[in-house]
Amino acid sequence: MSEQPILEARGLSRRFGHVTALDGADFDVRPGEVVALIGDNGAGKSTLVKALSGNLAVDSGEIRFDGKPVAIETPTVASGLGIETVYQDLALAPHLDPVANMFLGREVMRPGVLGALGFMDAKQMRVGAQEAFDLLGATVTDLNVPVGSMSGGQRQAIAIARAVHWANRVVFLDEPTAALGVRQTANVLDTIRRVRDHGVAVVFISHSMPHVIEVSDRVQVLRMGRRVATFETAQTSMEELVGAMTGVNGEAA
């Protein structure tokens, strides 16, 4: 694991009025590994993810992709680099069906003149979406109904399938298991491993220490807007992680 990080943040800072959300935060993730990003509420996890996925401008600091400095100013830039994010609120359009959501903003067009006129290739998108869901082992029961009428687990599966389908370098998963039952959670954790095995870097944000220990290769801890610790998951314990999050052990050691 001495590889160069695929995505790296150096000294990111961002203030919202009097609140310092990020205070010189560092972060790095390498290809083909799962990094868990943990921290207490308000530690800056979501802000960091937003900054790295093009949804938030930072006041200062540098983001490097493949070793080169980049400016990820919009989600489109992030997508162009192969970075996708699954947000806590999933960011699906509830009235659209799973296929439409999967290809939203990246519609496959009909060939030739019809495509130039803006006509979409519904069949092609349907096949692509079905493949993506199958690859994930996600049983999306009906490709024709609005995702708003589906269960939380199914919606989660669709959001993750969408991100994984388009991300070929980095996937951010913000609390992907928070709303899920036992079986769906196992499914998501399986998916994370499968995506990693394809060489994609996975950043996994979670409050659930058992899930973090189960699925991650490394753990990075944020506290008060900066990275305070990095652990190899195999050589750490839940107590150590919680201690680093809350700062109790940190001060004592």
């Binding site: 989600p75 960011a91 509830p94 439409a100 519609e107």
Partner: peptide, 23 residues
């Protein structure tokens, strides 16, 4: 049938989601 129509639905359905996928 067109992308323009699809995006019209998407924006009405969840504007924030539409922005996040780059519409």
């Amino acid at each position: 049938l067109t992308r323009f129509g699809r995006h019209t639905y998407a924006i009405g359905s969840n504007e924030e989601a539409a922005r996040r996928v780059g519409l």
